[in-house]
Design a protein around this nucleic acid. Structure first.
Length: 408
DNA sequence: ATGTCC
């Protein structure tokens, strides 16, 4: 492994920031934001920056924030446990119909997407009654939810059970892809939906309230933190862990329903031949690094322990990657979570037309309307450059190209 | 990203 696989950014009173961004553009605003976070006294050793880095709310997307003795709830953010699941099926491209519209419709029917709940027959494919998988996974989540709501009863008012098995909006998506041997993969991107959002917002507010006397001294009020040993620290760890589990199960439920929809739509019997890769890219967990117990916050970054499988999706119409971690300790064993934006959603809508988006996604069976212009590939970094910049963090196992895409 | 009353 090369020693010069990352560059180091330093500033007075800040931990070093190690950046795997060779050959990809890094927004100056993102650099400032990274250095603000690096100034927090409880950063362990250094921060690690992935090549898809870009400005986020409070802290930077595409960064790994190792902490000891404190945690910043806004660093994880509100889309707690957001991530990807992918499985390889025994199907080949030749088993798919020429026109994929029927398959897209079947997936849209099978998984509520957009602003929906999982029952009561609204538009966009809500079910009349939630399927068995929803109730089964909710039963596993319920004891933890009860413990949380005993302490924070407001969480009872969120979309919790009602959102299990639903995709959501924005850049959450479901895709059918083909690998280099034309084998069919299913992958999807989603998180902890309404209840995770509420948990994130609740604890971000609590951290700011707990620190109200000192918050003016912080470089950014979104760096408000809980100190280990405080009541809210323990409650946050419990709540964020639960939301991450909800997100993981949410993806499992949707994957099952997509596979069932394909089975109804495709005459040839098939199986999921490769065990699902199900990885968060927006989360915090305790890990051991450099011989110490560390809280690792990955905000738009994926765990890449040696041999661990991960998913790096490209933008709509671009390539996606199934990767294997190389266990690079300097990165706290991490890799990027995607291509990363070079342009905000509003800027993309201003710069590109619907015709541009239709041209860029001509090879994919997907929505082609003005509401998805902000997902145009040109609003994202070049995924090949992003992969090259992290060649010391992960190796590519499969390169996938999308053929069907369902967006929330 | 979510949900809604600025």
């Amino acid at each position: 492994m090369k020693n010069n696989d990352y560059q180091i950014m330093t500033s007075e009173n800040a931990a070093p920031v190690k950046m795997w961004t060779q050959g990809v553009p890094v927004d100056p605003g993102a650099r400032d934001q990274l250095l603000n976070t690096a100034k927090m006294p409880f950063i362990f050793r250094h921060m690690a920056v992935m090549p898809d880095v870009h400005l986020g709310k409070g802290s930077t997307i595409g960064s790994v924030i190792p902490t000891r003795g404190a945690i910043i709830p806004a660093a994880v953010g509100v889309d707690i446990g957001c991530g990807m699941i992918a499985v390889r099926t025994s199907l080949n491209a030749a088993d798919l119909p020429d026109n994929l519209y029927g398959i897209r419709s079947a997936i849209e029917q099978a998984v509520p997407h957009g602003r929906t709940v999982n029952r009561s027959g609204r538009d966009k494919g809500s079910w009349n009654r939630p399927p068995e998988a929803v109730d089964r996974h909710w039963a596993s989540l319920l004891p933890g939810f009860k413990r949380l709501t005993d302490k924070y009863p407001d969480l009872l008012k969120t979309n919790n059970y009602q959102h299990l098995g639903t995709l959501g909006t924005g850049n959450h998506f479901i895709e059918l892809c083909l690998d280099e041997q034309n084998q069919v993969w299913v992958m999807l991107h989603s998180g902890s939906r309404g209840v995770g959002n509420a948990i994130g917002n609740l604890f971000i507010t609590l951290a700011q309230e707990d620190m109200h006397q000192h918050i003016a001294n912080l470089p950014d009020r979104n760096l408000a933190y809980f100190e280990e040993g405080s009541r809210h620290f323990d409650d946050y760890i419990e709540a964020v862990s639960w939301a991450q589990e909800y997100a993981r199960r949410n993806r499992e439920v949707m994957m099952q329903h997509v596979l069932e929809a394909l089975a109804r739509e495709i005459p040839k019997p098939f199986t999921a031949v490769q065990e699902a890769v199900n990885c968060h890219h927006n989360y915090v967990q305790r890990e051991r690094h450099f011989g110490e117990s560390v809280l690792v916050t990955r905000k738009g970054a994926v765990s890449a322990q040696k041999g661990e499988m991960g998913i790096i999706p490209g933008s709509m119409g671009a390539k996606s990657y199934i990767v294997r971690g190389l266990g690079n300790e300097e990165s706290f064993c991490s890799c990027s979570h995607g291509a990363g934006r070079v342009m905000s959603r509003t800027a993309a809508k201003k710069h590109f037309t619907l015709e541009d988006q239709k041209r860029a996604t001509a090879h994919v069976e997907c929505r082609k309307d003005s509401d998805v212009i902000d997902e145009i590939p040109m609003a994202y970094k070049d995924i090949d450059a992003v992969m090259a910049a992290q060649s010391s963090l992960v190796e590519i196992v499969h390169t996938l190209r999308q053929v069907v895409c369902v967006k929330g």
